[in-house]
């Protein structure tokens, strides 16, 4: 009796394991690695890509795998070992470029295939509503007077928030090493530090602060976007006369050692996905900027980013 039940049970399980484990080709069972734990920005992008690919039938049954740790460099190291696997892609972004530098990762972007850039986000510089700082000029003046006295709160070390702080400081003639940057582990903590007056200045993605800005608890000084964003009512650093911009782009990598056909197939999948109205809707809903860039151009872009961010981090003493 027990055996009669056991056989179909084990059979079904084995079948399920087999179907999820087989190298089934990029069009049927593409694996999307999110090099972060569930709930973060990269995980969100991976799951939205998965949903879009599935709903539009670009890929029949895409899977998301989380490989969290060390600003994505653990995922990067794993991807570098998947030599020649044409059915895997991984999320990447600005933070990973910084992470490779900060963590002295032995694996870099040269060890994997650069696939595509997808989205961008810009940063916002805010102060508490009752702050004496009224403009970026005030911030520059305060920095020049005593950089240590201005506590700047943002995300983890080497991330986009700190990169922006370092660049702006340099732009106004303050050594980036003198910036009193306090790294908070989550958006919630960074907001809290501003509301309680512990941080004098906050830097984060616009979406994280948007609500507090609208509610009047925080005041936006400037955006880090390259183009003016009139609908937000906040000027960009360019518009204010500072030659600084800092995005938070996200893109896709693939394993090394792919054949031309495999690579072309993955690029086609990405191109088809981002061309769907469903993806446009997703971008809109998340208030991202679509900055799709596929293939060689993206590889060049990454090289530039690596060089640029290396230089900033060196200046900042990290």
């Amino acid at each position: 009796m027990g055996v009669v039940l056991l056989v179909p049970l084990v059979g079904a399980a084995a079948w399920d394991a087999r179907s999820s484990g087989t190298l089934s080709g990029a069009r049927t069972g593409l694996t999307i690695i999110a090099p972060a734990s569930t709930g973060g920005g990269w995980d969100g992008l991976a799951r939205q890509l998965q949903a879009t690919m599935r709903d539009t039938d670009v890929v029949t049954n895409p899977q998301v795998v989380n490989v969290p740790g060390a600003a994505g460099t653990i995922g990067l190291a794993q991807l570098a070992q998947m030599e020649g696997q044409g059915d895997v892609i991984m999320i990447t972004g600005t933070v990973m470029v910084g992470g490779v530098e900060i963590n002295d990762s032995p694996v870099g972007f040269d060890d994997v295939t650069s696939l595509a850039r997808l989205t961008d986000d810009y940063e916002v510089i805010v102060v508490p509503a009752d702050s004496p700082l009224q403009s970026v000029d005030d911030l520059a003046a305060a920095w020049q007077a005593d950089p240590g006295a201005v506590a700047v709160g943002g995300g983890s070390l080497g991330g986009t928030d700190q990169l922006l702080a370092a660049q702006l400081a340099q732009e106004v003639g303050v050594p980036a090493t003198d910036v009193n940057y306090i790294a908070y582990s989550g958006g919630g903590e960074a907001i809290q530090a501003l509301l309680s007056g512990a941080s004098d200045v906050g830097i984060s993605g616009y979406n994280e602060f948007a609500d507090q800005i609208e509610a009047g608890a925080l005041r936006a000084l400037a955006l880090s976007a390259p183009e003016p964003q009139p609908e937000l009512g906040v000027e960009t650093l360019y518009e204010l006369g500072y030659d600084v911009h800092q995005g938070n782009w996200r893109g896709l990598l693939a394993p090394p050692g792919l054949t031309e056909e495999e690579r072309a197939e993955l690029e086609a999948i990405v191109a088809e996905t981002v061309a769907t109205p469903e993806w446009a809707e997703t971008v809109e809903r998340n208030q991202w900027v679509d900055v799709t860039l596929v293939g060689e151009d993206f590889a060049d872009f990454i090289d530039e980013e690596v060089a640029r961010i290396q230089a900033i981090l060196e200046e900042a003493g990290l």
Binding site: Q192, A193, L195, S196, G197, A198, A217
Partner: peptide
């Protein structure tokens, strides 16, 4: 809101 803003490091 008031409780949250009362707490810093």
């Amino acid at each position: 809101a008031s409780l949250a803003s009362a707490f810093g490091p």
